[in-house]
């Protein structure tokens, strides 16, 4: 593991940019291609890169398995929850106009952002969780 100095240095340089790019893809999706799904994959890929270069144990120290599992389920719950809130406030399921905000455009934006954050969390968590599962399995040999 001492010969891969170049890999380690490059990975360390790349990682912050990967994660920031992921968030850019997420929050800039209104006007450019992208969205929660793509952003989740990019951020997940950053964590996977870290796990490949520095080892699974190091990655689990930074992003624990528990956090990853919570991300998957909380992300899904946020999406479901936004729908249910619209429902309870008298609209259809996933009706953002029913959210308690005066301006309908703003209520759409809020709804879309909440839903996209749910997607982001679920996808990031799922990608990392599946990778952890496979990589952890490989160690048992």
């Amino acid at each position: 593991m001492r010969l891969d100095v170049i890999l380690r240095v490059i990975a360390k340089l790349l990682l912050p940019f990967t994660v920031v790019f992921g968030f850019y893809v997420h929050f800039h999706a209104e006007t450019s291609p992208g969205g929660g799904f793509q952003a989740g994959v990019v951020i997940g890929a950053g964590v996977i890169l870290y796990a490949i270069i520095f080892g699974l144990d190091e990655a689990i120290k930074i992003v624990p398995v528990r956090v990853v599992e919570l991300l998957v389920s909380v992300g899904t719950l946020i999406f479901l929850g936004v729908g249910i809130v619209g429902w309870l406030l008298g609209g259809n399921y996933l009706d953002y106009y029913a959210l308690p905000i005066a301006d309908p455009i703003i209520s759409q934006e809020v709804g879309i952002h909440l839903v996209e954050i749910g997607v982001l969390m679920a996808v990031t968590g799922a990608v990392i969780a599946i990778f952890y599962a496979f990589a952890g399995r490989g160690r048992s040999r």
Binding site: A29, E30, T31, S32, P33, G34, G35, F37, V72, S73, G75, T76, F79, L80, G83, Y93, L94, Y96, I105, I106, Q108, E109, G111, I112, V115, E116, G118, V119, A122, V123, A126
Partner: peptide, 26 residues
């Protein structure tokens, strides 16, 4: 108010489909 129509279709008009997608990933 979203200029990227792909985003508005995915997250708003067809939000139900995207919810299904997220549940598949889950």
């Amino acid at each position: 108010g979203v200029p990227n129509v792909v985003a508005s279709v995915l997250a708003s008009y067809r939000g139900w489909d995207t919810l299904g997608e997220v549940v598949v990933i889950f």
